[in-house]
Structure formats: structure tokens, C-alpha cells
Amino acid sequence: MLELKQVQKTFNPNTINERRALKGIDLTLQEGDFVTVIGGNGAGKSTMLNAIAGVWPIDQGQILVDGIDITKLAQHKRAQYLGRVFQDPMMGTAADMELEENLALAKRRGQFRGLKWGITAKEREEYRELLKILDLGLENRLKAKVGLLSGGQRQALTLLMATLQKPKVLLLDEHTAALDPKTASKVLEISDRIIAENRLTALMVTHNMRDAIHYGNRLIMMNEGRIILDISGEEKKKLTVEHLLEQFTKASGSEFATDRALLS
């Protein structure tokens, strides 16, 4: 479904600020894989997601979706294959546009946008049904400007928008990190449900080890631009936070360096 072959990225090459963010990432996702990605600060988690999304060109390697080489495709062109939810709840929606307008924009991801006017009653009904499932009371606020919604509501809406056109791969980049714990767990549950119901292939970056263990069928750990651990199936189900920390120390030769991950 998704294939990364020897993906490399260096920021600010040949300067004093040079940073080798990805040092040859090899990763293959099977259809229906829900992979959680964990690692310390600067491990390359978000960089890897941005590389897949095409935020900037990569230096070396190849990225394939469903066998199609998307390495050189512009960001908006590969959007037809990808659904994305960002860490910042403000980033995934257009604040000054109505809720239903945001959904209508997402509904046409990867499709031709022409001179068809407005939103049909049928479309609106579909959105209402989908919003009802979120259970956030948004189904009655289709005409509200998205800027009026809370961070959690916006994140849930972004999630819905990312999956309205079934993506080949769903990219979740610490999408609950900016929310309060209660809201975060609700948005995570919604994510899990949407992924399961639509049998989506997903890559979820998180700094929370417990969430990384609890959700998904596969877990990868990154450190200094490399994947250092890849656990799936039965083995993943038996994982504990302590075990994961131990594994990290063994694989990287250093202590896991994120206080956030330990405390949360």
C-alpha cells in the first residue's frame, strides 16, 4: 500500500545548521495496517510524514502508494491518495468558511473542481449523518463558521475531512497533542473507529507510549532519522511501556529522551 525506499532528507545542507533528519527510511505498509510511530524529539517522525505528504522534495529514495511512484508529485497532486490530520487543530480546516463548505472542499479531494454551485441537499444530508456519528453536536451546526469550533471539534472535523474521500493512506501527525487529555482520548477513539470502519491504512505519530501500544496493529520506533524498532501482531499486544523503554535503550544505545513520553 505504502512503500518508502531508502528515503533521505537533510535540512540546511552544507551549512552550520545542517541536520540529517531522515537517514534512509525503509518502510512498507500492508493494506489495513494501522501503524503507530513513536520516538524522541527530533527522531524524524513528523519529517517522515511530511516526506510522504510532499511538503518538500526528498533528497534521495522513493515513495510509492499502491505501486505508483509519488516521489516527484506536487503536494496537492498526491493529496488524492492521502488524508492528513495535523498537530495544530487550526491547520486542517478553513476557519472563515462554513462547516459544510469545509466538508464540501474535502469531498472533492482528487476530483475536478468546476463551476457547480453550492451544496446539494443530498450532500448536506450525508454530512449530517457523518457528523452525527462523531457525537459532538456538530450535525446541527453545518452553517457555522469553523473558527467558532473548539480545538477538539476542529480536529474531529479534520479527521472526517481526511477520510471523506477514502484515502490510500491516512497520516495522523500527533493530532491529539494540542488537546486536553479528555478531548485527546475522545479524538483518538474517533480516529480508531473511523480507521476500523473504513479499513484504512494509517500512520499515526504520537508521543504517548501508552496510546502507541493501545492503538493499531503495528508499532515502529524512530531515533535519529532511522527506524530502530518494528513490532507487530501478537508481540505488539504484549508490549508494555517499560518493555518499550528497555527496547529503546537496547536498540539506540541511549536513554529515551522525552520527558513528555514518560510522564504522559
Binding site: 503536494q75 496537492h76 493529496a79 468558511m97
Partner: peptide
């Protein structure tokens, strides 16, 4: 309008 309002979001939606 989406482009002017939130360019990042617009790109992510294939615009």
C-alpha cells in the same frame, strides 16, 4: 477562498 483562508489545508485537500 480556501487557498486564501488556509493554504496548508487547501493543499492537503488537493487544491
Amino acid at each position: 477562498r480556501a487557498t486564501g483562508n488556509n493554504e496548508q489545508m487547501a493543499k492537503a485537500q488537493g487544491i
